[in-house]
Amino acid sequence: MGNAVIRTEHLTKVYKARTEWEFSMGHMPTRRQYEATRALSDLNLTVEQGEIFGYLGPNGAGKTTTIRLLLDLIRPTSGRAFIFDMDANAQSVDVHKRIGFLPGELNLWKNRTARQVVNYFAQVRAGANAGLILRYAQELAERLGFNMNKPVRDYSSGNKRKLGLILALMHKPDLLILDEPTSGLDPLMQQTFNQLMLEVKEEGRTVFMSSHVLSEVQAICDRVGILRRGELKAVESVSKLTHTDFRWVTVRLKEPVSVDTFKGIEGVSDVSAVNGELRFRLTGDFDPLLRALSQHYVVDLHTQDPTLEEIFLAFYGDQPVRNHNNDAAVKEQVQ
C-alpha cells in the first residue's frame, strides 16, 4: 500500500441537455428531450496499489460514468483523473497498456468466435509477442470452464461474462477496472472469480470494481466507496462496515396484526405490511422482538442482511463524504 494507482481530482461530469430524434420504419419520428444531468460531482478518490476497491451505489449513481472517465471513453466537464500518475486523457494509450477492463454489458462482434476475439485483443496488446497472453487466456478459459470456439452470439450472458473476464485478465494488467463483474455468473464461478481477484491482489496488482453483491465485496474487497446521485458519500474499510448491527426481518403471523403493534418494540423500525407479511428493520438483539412475537402464532420468519448501500446509509445517511483512505484521510466536502 502507499502508491496511488487511481487518483481523481474534483472529477465532474455534466451531460448537456439535448434533443434526439428517433427514426424507425413505418413510424413518425419521435422526439426525446434529455435534461442536463450532473452524473458525477467533484469526485476525489484515491485507490492504492495492491488493494481491491469496491465501488458501490444504486443505478444512476455515477459508477459507470466514473469508470468511463477513467478509461477516457468520455471526457470530464472539469477535474482530472490520473492512473499510475499518468493523465487518463492525455496519456490514455500508455494507461490502457496497463489496464484490463470489463464493462457492465459486454458487447463484441457477434459473428466472431471467442478465440478470434481473444486473438485480436492479444495482437493489439502485444503484437508479435501475443503468445504469452494467449497461453494465459487458455489457462483462464480452463479455470472458468469456458469453450472459446463458439461465435459470440451463441454465448449465454454468463458465458459472455467469462469471456469478458478473460479479455480483462489475460495480459495480467497492473489495474483491473471491472463493472459488475459477477453479474450472470453462477455461484461456483463467483468463487473462481473471487479466487482470481485474490491472486491478482497477491501479485501486488490492483482491482477497482463496482458491485452490488455484499458477499462478494465482503469476501474480496479491502475498501469500498459509495456513490449517491453522483457524489462520493464515503470511503471505508469493509471490515469496519460489515460489523454493522442491523438486518431486515420478515414475519408472517396467523392472525392479522396492526403495524403499530410492532412500532414500540426495542430495535424495531421502518415497519411495513406487504402481502400479509410484516417487514421491518431490527437493530441490536433479537430478544425484545422474540418476546413480542411470543404473543402471536408465527407462521414464518426470515431475516435478510442489509445491502452495502443500506449499511452505508445507516452509517452516514446524507452526510458529507468521509474518505478514510489512510491516516492522511481525504476529507473533502461535497458541494
Binding site: 478509461l71 489496464i99 462482434w109
Partner: peptide
C-alpha cells in the same frame, strides 16, 4: 452503436 467500441477503445489504441 453496438457498444463494441467501449472494449476496443479500452485497448492501447489511439
Amino acid at each position: 452503436d453496438d457498444g463494441i467500441l467501449d472494449m476496443v477503445l479500452s485497448l492501447p489504441l489511439p
